[in-house]
Design a protein around this nucleic acid. Structure first.
Lengths: 145, 145
DNA sequence: CTTCAATCCTTGAACATTCAATATTTTCCA
DNA sequence: TGGAAAATATTGAATGTTCAAGGATTGAAG
């Protein structure tokens, strides 16, 4: 009588994703720490870099943060004069976020640090695997909606 | 003179991983919430299911938690009598964690809920994509050490 | 054998996140 | 139009996580 074959946790997709995410994130954090900025703030600055105003809700979705968490992170970034709030004239429930000049300067530095990482991954992991992995992840995300 | 082409954040591997991880984790959380258990506790129970004693350090690595976070989560699980601590007789700095009978019962229910999810992913995302994605993730994790 | 460094886990304080509730504005429809 | 329902953002309390430090044990070097 065989024991019920329980697949080890390392075979679950959810686990592999968590593990890979954790590792890549850790590496990215390490680079961005040169500028003393958490990953989420890099994402926020990057999204706002288009110069358009983005509402909090939009931004929360884009940077993968819950609304209250984003509000408080934005509070810090406003204190650091990296971004600023403007009330949306078309819908006064909304707040539009903009990147400041100081934010733009920082954003560029961070982009370059992040690009370093992508480069490093390409080297150690391979061009082909990387693009294939990205493709599969995009498709997984799509299929989950 | 073209503007420096800044790749959108959605093209970064780090971002895609975070997004996919968030989504899959959200789905898993939803299922496990039927038993009122966070994903990390499922992982802990699953790892301990082999019946062997696992030290806190070992466990922290396996379930992707920092040591102090694990200590406090284990405190809660001990209160719920899902697991228990035993001082390692061979090295008294270490604590060995074991799963209780109650923990085993819960673990089985959780495994089945988690299996449901994997099944659901297989259906909507496809057999082939799933195994290919797992393969690539494993290889990414390997190449990051 | 003694001492010093390393390993392992836990603790307490600082910090961050989340949940539920709230305030404001807009939308919808009766 | 008027008023209820929905959408948006924030707040405060509860909760969880992290950082730095500490206590205990082991290993290793003199």
């Amino acid at each position: 009588m065989a024991k019920p074959q329980n697949s080890p946790i390392t075979e679950h997709l959810a686990y592999l994703l968590a593990q890979a995410n954790r590792e890549i994130n850790r590496q990215l954090e390490l680079r961005l720490s040169k500028e003393g900025v958490p990953v989420e703030q890099w994402r926020i600055l990057k999204v706002l870099s288009d110069g358009d105003g983005h509402s909090m809700g939009e931004l929360a979705d884009a940077v993968l943060l819950n609304h209250p968490t984003l509000t408080k992170m934005i509070d810090r970034m406003v204190s650091d004069t990296l971004v600023y709030r403007v009330q949306d004239p078309n819908d006064r429930r909304k707040v539009l976020m903009f990147i400041s000049d100081r934010g733009k300067v920082l954003s560029k530095k961070l982009n370059s640090l992040a690009a370093d990482q992508e480069e490093h991954i390409l080297e150690s992991y391979g061009d082909k695997s990387t693009s294939e992995l990205k493709r599969l992840l995009e498709s997984l995300i799509d299929s989950s909606n």
